[in-house]
Design a protein around this nucleic acid. Sequence first.
RNA 1: GCCGGUGUGGCGAAAUGGCAGACGCACGGGACUUAAAAUCCCGAGGCCUUCAACAGCCGUGCGGGUUCGAAUCCCGCCACCGGCACCA
Length: 997
Amino acid sequence: MYGVGRGFASVLSGNSTIALEAGFAQYPPLMSMVRRQYPFHLIEPKWQRFWEERQSFRAWNPGETLPSEHPFARRHGLGGRLSSAEEMPPKYFILDMFPYPSGAGLHVGHPEGYTATDILARYRRARGWHVLHPMGWDAFGLPAEQYAIKTGQHPRITSKRNIATFKRQIQALGFSYDWSREVDTTDPGYFRWTQWIFLQLYNSYFDPEWNKATPIALLEDALSDAPRRESEWRGNPFLSGTHKAWIEMPPEQKYGLRRQFLDRWRLAYVAEAPVWWCEALGTVLANEDVVDGKSEVGGHPVVRRPMRQWMLRITAYAERLLADLDTIDWSPSLKDMQRNWIGRSDGAEIDFVVASSGGEASDGAPRIRVFTTRPDTLFGATYMVLSPEHKLMDEITTPAQREAVLEYKARAAAKSDLDRTDLSKEKTGVFTGGHAFNPATGERIPIWIADYVLASYGTGAIMAVPAHDTRDYEFARKFSLPIVQVVEPPAGTDWRGYVDDGVAVNSAAGDLSLNGLPTAQAKARMTEWLEAKGLGVRTVNYKLRDWLFSRQRYWGEPFPIVWRQDASGNWFHEALPESALPVLPPELDDYKPTSEGEPPLARAREWVHLGEGVRRETNTMPQWAGSCWYYLRFLDARNDAVFVSRAAERYWMGTSDGRPRSVGPESDTDASGSSCAAADAAPRPGVDLYVGGTEHAVLHLLYARFWHKVLYDLGHVSTPEPFYRLVNQGLILGEDGQKMSKSRGNVVNPDAILDEYGADAFRLYEMFMGPLQDSKPWSTKGVEGVYRFLGRVWRLFIDERSETEFEQNCAAEPRRAAEHLEAIRLSPKIEEAAPAPAQLKALHACIQKVTEDLDGLRFNTAISAMMVFVNEAMTWPNRPVPVLRDFLILLQPFAPHLAEELASRLPPAGEWGAEGLDLAYQPWPRFDPALLIEETLEIPVQVNGKLRDVVRVPVTATAPEFERAALAAPKVQPFIEGKTVKKVIVVPKKLVNIALG
RNA sequence: GCCGGUGUGGCGAAAUGGCAGACGCACGGGACUUAAAAUCCCGAGGCCUUCAACAGCCGUGCGGGUUCGAAUCCCGCCACCGGCACCA
């Protein structure tokens, strides 16, 4: 496996000099030929093969029969039986964000999270959990397609090759994935279910009464003359109201409107949406694919263009996506990012009546509806602004202003969104000539058009309160519009441009006065008044937009949709039946869009045209689609009948029996009072731990949550949230402290590190660098440090003489290296003796620290605790076997290959070494707090908070004894002589502080 | 501009109200060696004094506060990183 040039390297596995002669002829100078700390090049492939052959890390679904020889079955006494969810230990689902297998291969950033989760997966197995730890490939995507356009090579081939590289690299790290559950989003057996989920969305609508996704069949039923499912929707005012409207509709209109109505309500719908079109890539891009006005991939220019697109109605879930953040264990900053993205704001919609040309209000006059979060400032609204796209524009614009307005509209349309929203640009706008009445003051105020008002947010129109809104203030000053104060700021602050809360002033007319009310109350009062008068209504707005779900690409999931024409020649869409899945993409020679700008799939004429005027949809789904639900497929990856079986879903998502279990595997047998927290032992609803980078903080995680909720509403999954706990790993920077990038030339290739130091050292270093969540720079020197530590562990166990023999034998017969490895003997210092108290103490301190640190995800300090233990153990005259055994169990999650190798050499005892129980399944040792108790303690003595001396006192000492010892401490004397002791603070077993007067 | 995070030796870091710098890197000295590598042992925050040691003083981005005691808690500022950004 580490075969590179290593005919030679493997010969040189020790401090042998004989090997050099063979090597020198072919290989360049000595430099890289440092002595290996231990023969990891033989050990690591050996154990990887062992785990693979035994399927050591396979997880089992309820209903499967466990082979009696499998280590998990052995450990839990489940061998040879049909397993049920009740019999199996509680699950622990630990998930990595699966990678996009790029051509560049693995990056040192990938294994950081993967190592962390692997350590925890192994730790949980040792603690008795049933661990699900899978891996797969997010393999649809643009790079493979771009490569195909350039070379004509099918993206499937590129993807397969990249997956093979990624898999080889990941497996070389010894991760304990259950490879029998591997998924690949480009596999028809997988994307068939992605398409199936799309059909679920297509065939559902969001019911405003029930606040959840509901089969569209129910809405169809309500839109029929003789409903058959009335009993299901009678209690639902929305559906019964819809039905009533249907019945009252003139028959000649009914059937034309029916399809339109249904299609408008679907969770997956078609809309003419302004989208980012990238000429160079020949596709539309979602907002998230566009960074600073350029395509995220390749940095090509993009323009805004209206196109027919598939959309997903994620906005319907805005409130639930927001509210349910409170039920999951994510970092506050991550939740904040999601909250900001959803962007809830509470306010009111207010109608402004447009003044007729004569200047009076009339009944039939059009109304402009605005959204504001500050209804309390309505008295200060001195003008209005419409977005350039506003639909009432023509009605409002006076003939005199028409030309200017049209010109402004044209200019705004030509601008990209980047230009429009660009930073601190001067505000622009044009007066429409029209006026409206401020509903509070009754005053006639001018209506302007300006592109600082966005058509896509709120109502696309605002009331401008220049005194208390930064943007309106700038605009008003530029165009000399009146500015009226209506909020009194705290003393000393200028009211002009004051946007925070204050007290309402100048806000009274007729039966309404807000004067003197603090902002919060003024808002409430104003809203009440507006609602009572029918002029406005309390409203909640979200920044979140519906999800643009189609791409004009080849390498993505085709939609399971066809188009037909109705009698009047209009096209309408229709879902394919489930039996038509998977819809495979056609084979093409050319992956570019057509010259007419149609997606590449349109090139496949036979594929597109199904006869009788039926055409397939030629868009494909975005890359997010496959990653939206892959964690569910892992639960039952080979099931051809359903996307995940009910039993597997309930077991692994922690809702077996429809209720979460309350007790973990070990909490009830926890006799030692060790750190095994009972609270932590309960299975979580959903993925127990999901680890990945912050780059997916909003999009992937929001989209996946959305799909999950839809599936939950439709009864396909049993939890409202997919990922119970989520941790973002930090970025690994280059050695120069900069972000790793090819252009900086600071990219570290994991293969090179593995060759030189081995997988165990690599894993250990990635965890030793610092806290998982922090960004931190790579240091190859640092790898050497942990590598030396592993060498010390090796020498703690191994007889150095027999290692020298091993090296010589390998030099002589490199082909028999594996046999020579087996001949290495244990150190003579290792004996089956009862450990001395000091030895037990060192071990148990280590157990405690490693256990607690793993529970808290503090890998770096857990490793340092093991270093401390080994440093001490190296000085012992003898090395008792029981102590070493426990230590290896602690080491196993971090450096599994070395730990297994050393464990296999220790003498058997009980289950230890028994056929069929891997080290990975040995029960985690519990520490005995009694062993850690010191007889005497070193207590620091402070005078006025400054350390002056240290005294030794028995653990049993009482507070007065502490005090006496402290006051008698020799080095304290000069500081207290001749002074009055005001107070002595005794913190038992910790410290004494003498405060002087 | 708004939101979040971080700031500790030459470097990665530890300590989250109680001995600042565990562990590791780099560095210096020693042992082993013909020599080097590897390994093992020892040293090490800064300043001042001293032959040396002891002792002393300063020290966790900056300024203030709470406390017997602050890297840790509170207030104000600065710098860097990440996210959002005309969202009314």
